[in-house]
Measured scan of single mutants.
Amino acid sequence: MLYVKVKTEDGEELVLEVEGMTEDEIREELAKAGFKIEEIEVYEVEP
C-alpha cells in the first residue's frame, strides 16, 4: 500500500492512500480539490 502524508499551508495534516500515482499527479489532484500544499511525504506500507 502506498500512502502520502500531506501538510497544508493552514497546518492541516492528511494521510491519503494512493495507488499508481506519481507525486506530481498527487499534487495536481489535491490542487484541484482546493488544497494548498506545503509538504508531501510518500511512504509504502507492507501488508
Rank of each mutant, 00 (worst) to 15 (best):
M1P: 13
E17R: 15
A31R: 12
E38A: 14
I26G: 00
E46R: 07
L16M: 10
D10C: 12
V6S: 00
V15T: 07
E23Q: 06
I37S: 06
I37Y: 10
D24K: 10
E19C: 15
E13V: 14
E38L: 15
V4D: 01
E29I: 15
L30S: 00
E12T: 13
V15S: 04
L2M: 12
E29N: 09
K5A: 03
L16D: 00
E12H: 12
A33E: 05
K36Q: 06
E12D: 09
I40D: 01
E39N: 13
G11E: 01
E46Q: 12
I26L: 07
E41R: 09
E39P: 02
L2A: 06
G20N: 10
P47V: 07
V4Q: 00
V42T: 05
E13C: 15
M1Q: 09
P47N: 09
L2E: 02
E25W: 03
D24H: 08
P47S: 09
V4P: 00
F35R: 00
E12L: 14
E28R: 11
L30K: 00
I37Q: 07
V45I: 12
V6M: 04
A33F: 13
E23K: 09
V15L: 12
K36W: 05
E29G: 05
L2I: 09
E23S: 07
D24Y: 09
E44Q: 09
E41F: 15
E23M: 15
E44N: 10
K5N: 03
E19L: 13
E41H: 10
T8D: 04
T22V: 02
E25K: 05
E13P: 03
F35H: 04
E38P: 02
E41N: 08
E28F: 10
P47Y: 09
E17V: 15
V4F: 04
V18P: 00
E9F: 09
V4Y: 06
E13R: 04
E46A: 12
E17K: 14
V15E: 04
E46D: 13
E19P: 05
V45D: 08
V42C: 03
E44S: 10
T8H: 03
F35N: 02
Y43E: 03
V4A: 05
E41W: 15
R27K: 10
E28W: 08
F35P: 00
Y43V: 07
E9L: 11
A31D: 04
Y43K: 06
V18I: 09
V45Q: 10
G20T: 05
A33Q: 15
P47I: 11
E12R: 15
G34K: 02
L14D: 01
E13I: 14
E25L: 05
E12C: 15
E13H: 09
E39T: 14
K32Q: 08
G11V: 01
E28K: 12
L14Q: 04
A33K: 14
I37H: 06
T8V: 04
G34W: 02
I37C: 11
E25Y: 03
E44Y: 13
Y3P: 01
V15N: 05
Y3C: 03
E28Y: 10
K32A: 09
K7C: 06
I40A: 03
E46W: 14
G20R: 08
V18K: 03
T8S: 05
K7G: 02
D10T: 12
L14F: 14
V15G: 02
T8L: 15
E19N: 11
I40M: 10
I26F: 03
A31H: 09
V15Q: 04
P47F: 11
V6C: 05
G20W: 14
E41T: 11
Y3I: 14
I26K: 00
R27P: 00
L30V: 03
E13F: 14
T8Q: 05
E41Q: 09
R27Y: 08
M21A: 06
E39G: 07
G11M: 01
Y43D: 02
E38C: 07
K5T: 06
E44R: 11
L16P: 00
G20H: 07
E46M: 14
E28D: 07
E29V: 14
E44L: 11
